[in-house]
C-alpha cells in the first residue's frame, strides 16, 4: 500500500493575474487524477511571508511540493502531474 503523502502549496497574492489559474490547475488535476494522499492549499505570500521566503519563493505564482519549491511560474497540468507522480513513486524529491 502506498503510504507516501504529498503536500502541495500554491503561493499566491491578490495582485497576481496567474495565481487563480495556478490554483485551478492544481485543483482540476487532483480531481481528474484521483491521487491518494495528496493535499493542497493556497498560501497568501503576504500573510505567510516568513514561510514563503524560507522556501525561496520570490514571485507568484509558485508551487512547492513536499516543502520544496518546484515551480517558480505557472506549470502546465502535465508538468505538475509528472512531478506528483514522481514524488509518489520515489517518496520525495530528494536527490534530484
Amino acid at each position: 500500500m502506498n503510504k507516501v503523502s504529498v503536500d502541495i502549496e500554491v503561493f499566491t497574492s491578490t495582485v497576481c493575474s496567474n495565481c487563480q489559474r495556478a490554483s485551478r490547475v492544481v485543483e482540476q488535476l487532483l480531481e481528474e487524477a484521483g491521487f491518494v494522499n495528496v493535499t493542497w492549499r493556497e498560501v497568501d505570500v503576504v500573510e505567510e511571508i516568513d514561510h514563503t521566503v524560507a522556501l525561496g519563493v520570490l514571485a507568484t505564482p509558485a508551487i512547492a511540493i513536499g516543502g520544496k519549491l518546484v515551480f517558480s511560474a505557472l506549470p502546465s497540468k502535465q508538468q505538475l502531474r509528472n512531478v506528483i507522480q514522481y514524488y509518489l513513486a520515489s517518496g520525495g524529491l530528494d536527490g534530484e
Partner: peptide
C-alpha cells in the same frame, strides 16, 4: 529575499 518578493509583487 523578502524585499525581492515584495518588489516583484509590487511591479506585478
Amino acid at each position: 529575499k523578502e524585499l525581492i518578493l515584495l518588489v516583484n509583487l509590487c511591479s506585478a
